[in-house]
């Protein structure tokens, strides 16, 4: 009786009705998309400066000509992104854990960490870049590499470590106290409890926010260009100053999108797979 279910006429009629509604929803979505696209096109092409703007920003010949140089620059962005990302994640987690320590002897550590986070979270990235990029070389430390790439990456690491430490701290605080009680009841020390019980759950809780910051970091790697490192943005700047055509900027933007859009979709897919506890809570829509 259960295996061979033949849907009743009633069930078939309902299914047909639902199919009709889905088709209608699709057509409505399609129609509204077409209307918006046409409107956007008319406004853009109808603008008085459209012809000039198209030549200056969307010149196909220029696009092809500057692509290799800008792509070469993007390679630097990607390397900065990976290095800065790894250091900032590890450092941020370490700082967040350091803040949760309770030993009296570690008070100076907690104080320094708190001040560090307050400062670097409160100062604009651009300012940190300028201060690190022009301030550190002034110290004339013989062992310090003073290349633009190194200093730029350092500035980004300093800022993002502070950001990520705050995200991890929010995660640690979101772990329910009963979890700590259960771990301590088993005889685990404070440190063991933090490492084996609290941090794994904290990381899981904040993964969506964390991945969001990693995507943001990929874009902010372009800020090192202001110190003169030849990344995608700087390469585009150089091309623009040579030709007085802005297509190179569009090329750089295009290349950044080429990296960040798939990355964002990947993050969305990951969050959805975690069972809707992240951003894409699809189950909510199931109630008619």
């Amino acid at each position: 009786m259960s295996g061979q279910w033949t849907p009743s006429q009633r069930a078939l009629a309902r299914a047909a009705y639902r199919r009709g509604r889905r088709r209608r929803s699709f057509l409505v979505a399609l129609a509204s998309t077409v209307v918006v696209a046409v409107l956007a096109f008319v406004v853009l092409v109808g603008s008085p400066g459209w012809d000039r703007a198209r030549e200056a920003f969307f010149d196909p010949v220029e696009f092809v000509a500057v692509l290799p140089a800008v792509a070469q620059g993007l390679w630097l962005n990607l390397r900065v992104w990976v290095v800065a990302g790894v250091i900032a994640v590890v450092g941020g987690l370490a700082l967040a854990v350091a803040r949760t320590t309770t030993a009296p002897a570690l008070f100076p550590l907690r104080a320094v960490v708190t001040i560090y986070i307050d400062v670097f979270r409160g100062v604009p990235v651009l300012l940190v870049l300028l201060l690190v990029g022009f301030g550190l070389p002034a110290l004339r430390l013989p062992w310090l590499p003073i290349t633009a790439t190194f200093l730029g990456t350092l500035a980004i690491v300093l800022t993002y470590t502070a950001y990520l430490a705050e995200i991890f701290r929010a995660g640690i605080e979101s772990v329910h106290p009963s979890q700590v009680a259960a771990a301590r009841a088993l005889g685990l020390t404070r440190g063991q409890t933090t490492r084996r019980v609290v941090v794994p759950q904290a990381v899981r809780a904040v993964t969506p926010a964390l991945l969001n910051m990693i995507v943001a970091l990929q874009k902010d790697s372009g800020l090192i260009s202001i110190l003169g490192a030849v990344d995608a943005i700087r390469a585009a700047e150089i091309a623009v100053s040579g030709s007085y055509n802005f297509t190179a900027y569009v090329v750089a933007g295009f290349l950044f999108l080429l990296i960040s859009v798939p990355l964002t979709r990947l993050v969305d897919a990951y969050n959805a797979r975690r069972g809707g506890r992240g951003v894409g809570a699809a189950m909510v829509g199931a109630i008619r």
């Binding site: 009743s8 309902r14 008619r288």
Partner: peptide, 25 residues
């Protein structure tokens, strides 16, 4: 209470079949 969509059957409240998707849930 229409919190789950059923595969088949009748849920009549005062003679109106609520399982029909065209009923205002």
């Amino acid at each position: 209470d229409l919190l789950e969509e059923v595969d088949d059957g009748v849920i009549e409240l005062r003679g109106v079949d609520l399982a029909d998707p065209w009923v205002d849930a």
